[in-house]
Design a binder for these strands. Structure first.
Lengths: 175, 175
DNA sequence: CACGAGTGTTCCATGAACGGAACGGTAGCA
DNA sequence: TGCTACCGTTCCGTTCATGGAACACTCGTG
């Protein structure tokens, strides 16, 4: 991703956030103190805004600056009915633990092949009910409950019809 | 926090990252394609760099742009021997769940007063051993284990001597 | 149809961020 | 002590991002 692409991505996020809030370009210009022309070009990605402009913009839209500029492309895995966003990576002496936020649409099955030996997955349910685990040994957890399995064989996740949100941790032992 | 403060904070982060990597200002200038003078002033916070400059800088330092610009002040709670970094907030229909990464130094006790009624805390241990819970009803969990308690009374956390890392979720019911 | 009030885009003079050159300071070395 | 090499800071001419004005366009209204 180069700067032009990033500028375009930021522009899209700004326009989406503005639309979400029902603001016109002029209204956002007034509340942020940024020129209407500047805003227009920022939304099109044809500007190279400086820090104060970005900061004022994020403030007026009530978005964290980091969220406005995130290069989430690589950190976000999205498929039909499932979205996994990397929140954190803990590099311990014996293992690396990745922490994801998992958004599961209702009723959609997500399958995953076998991972390396010793890889353990854990799902801590935040909202809804999740059925997950190794093929043939699925279990179900409700809010606040934890599912654990060794994922060296094919496995999968599924939410109740209402959908679910969970924290997924993937623990990979060091080679 | 205004723009000047943010610029100063970013400058400090840049200088720290550069020192960590053992780079001189000139070397970083060459690898990032940014002028040496610009870099010097950015590190002092006396510049208002634009997007392409920030992006090139983050790239040369191998830091995510979002991390360079994060306004972590509000999202990070740091005290003696404990650090809690907000990873995510899930706003469900019945409750709001905050997800934190918890870093606990060995042997240090962290106490917390009572929260509102119905607030539930959960600790999923990623590394080490954690003893936590309501006063008088502490329990201990090792890697991959989960501790849960209702935090409407004083409670606390403590890691083994080696320290620990965990995911903490705080579930607050909607009023 | 004319008009006013709104939209978002394009244009422009000004001021500031840019890269690079010049500078003072320090360390190593003959 | 003279020389070289490199450090980080300050300065400077050029380039470009800025806010605001001018603009084209779309509605709703009389």
């Amino acid at each position: 991703m180069d700067t032009a692409e990033l500028a375009r991505a930021i522009g899209e996020r700004v326009r989406a956030a503005r639309a979400e809030r029902g603001l016109t370009l002029g209204a956002l210009a007034r509340s942020s103190g940024i020129g209407k022309g500047s805003l227009s070009e920022i939304e099109h990605g044809s500007r190279n805004p400086n820090l104060s402009t970005l900061y004022a913009l994020a403030g007026a839209l009530a978005i964290p600056l980091a969220a406005l500029l995130a290069e989430t492309a690589g950190a976000e895995i999205a498929a039909d009915g499932i979205r996994a966003r990397l929140l954190d990576v803990e590099e311990g002496p014996d293992a690396v633990v990745e922490v994801y936020r998992l958004d599961l649409e209702g009723g959609v099955e997500h399958r995953s092949g076998a991972h390396g030996p010793g890889v353990v997955e854990r799902v801590l349910v935040l909202r809804g009910r999740v059925t997950a685990g190794r093929d043939g040994a699925r279990r179900t957890a409700g809010e606040g409950e934890l599912l654990t399995w060794v994922s060296d064989v094919p496995h999968g996740y599924r939410a109740d019809d209402a959908g679910a949100v969970a924290v997924l941790t993937v623990t990979t032992p060091r080679a």
